[in-house]
Simulated scan of single mutants.
Amino acid sequence: MRHFLPSDPSPHDLGFTMPAEWAPHAATWMSWPADDDLWFGRLSGVRAEFAELVRTIARFEPVQLLVRDPESEQDARARLAGADVTFHAVALDDVWLRDNGPIFVQRGQEIALVNWRFNAWGGKFHWQNDDRVPEYVAQVLNAGHWDRPEILEGGGLEVNGRGVGLTTRSCFLTETRNPGLDEARYGALLQQTLGVRQLLWLGGGLENDHTDGHIDTITRFTDEQTIVTSVEPNPADPNHAVMQANLEALREMRDQDGQPFRIAELPLPAERLEGAEGRLPPTYANFYIGNGFVVVPQYGDPHDEQALAVLRPLFPGRELIGLSSREIIGGGGSFHCVTQQQPAGSIWTGQDRP
């Protein structure tokens, strides 16, 4: 296993790029919820929804599950008995592995990873243990990897596997992440590290999203040319103007071939949800795409079925599964936020054969 530093050849230099989420997976990586205080006294309900999510994913592909202490492992093993799950005892702060985990890159059938820094969305929570997770994954897999000094969360970037990426200014351009990195510098960085040749920018995300507006809570690729984006029809809702501006911007954008994207509008939940720290950011866009399935958060909301009806034709050949995320959203995220895909392929140790 070889570490690459910023002064070494980049993933782009060696032919690696970040594949789309719908490419075949070897596994899904997740972390088990453990801290009742972080979940405002609702840990039991959160774990019940997590167990249903893990069991669903494990029907289609192996799950690699990080557990932070003996109690967490005992609880997870009891709830997940018989599922295709491998347990890893790892020190953790929280469960949002999309953001603190590695981002995998691929070259042909070879897989490596990029280890970005993580600071809990600008220092909002504890992060020191979670920041070490990519190095642990690299050691377990014996994977060659690049250690980057920049802060970057997986939920802040969407890619279509053809060199196009989507992000938000409200997230990437905060001073608490990478001061001094502007849009042009981010574009160059993501081209060299993840193969994103064309980085497209939306303005912002949902109200009271502690990630500062991750793209994966509002706007997602469903194939190389199709984007589904959240809309809020109520002009009195603070999300309305932001989502409408995003929709109008997307209609003007072009794909890798210079063609307009196909845009599908996805409703936000009809009912306003309140948590311990104010308004929650429930969304149907935080779905997770796996081998033969898509799992979509549901909230017991009047728009639940409408959201599934919008998404179902966008994923032909995959089983669309709605699962409850009413408890998980209390922590500020949902299914995409707690998962990270490992693409299918052989692990590249960092050494090329002569």
Rank of each mutant, 00 (worst) to 15 (best):
A245V: 09
G290Y: 01
P235D: 03
N286K: 00
M1K: 10
G205A: 05
L5G: 15
L311N: 04
E252D: 13
F87L: 08
V228M: 02
R148H: 14
L113M: 07
E135A: 10
G317H: 05
N142D: 15
N160H: 12
G333S: 10
E274A: 12
P354E: 13
F4N: 08
A83I: 05
P235S: 06
G101P: 03
I151Y: 01
V63T: 06
E224M: 05
G345F: 05
W29P: 03
S230N: 02
A51H: 04
F221A: 00
A309T: 12
D257L: 08
E224K: 07
W39F: 08
L323H: 06
E61S: 07
Y284N: 11
G317Y: 03
D255G: 00
V46M: 02
P149G: 01
V54A: 08
F104L: 00
D182Q: 08
E183F: 05
E248S: 14
A264L: 11
A309D: 15
S31F: 07
D131C: 07
Q244P: 09
R177E: 06
D99N: 06
T211A: 08
P281H: 04
S72P: 09
Q306E: 12
R353Y: 13
P24T: 04
A344S: 15
L97F: 09
D255A: 03
N129D: 12
H12S: 15
L113V: 01
S10R: 10
F172S: 11
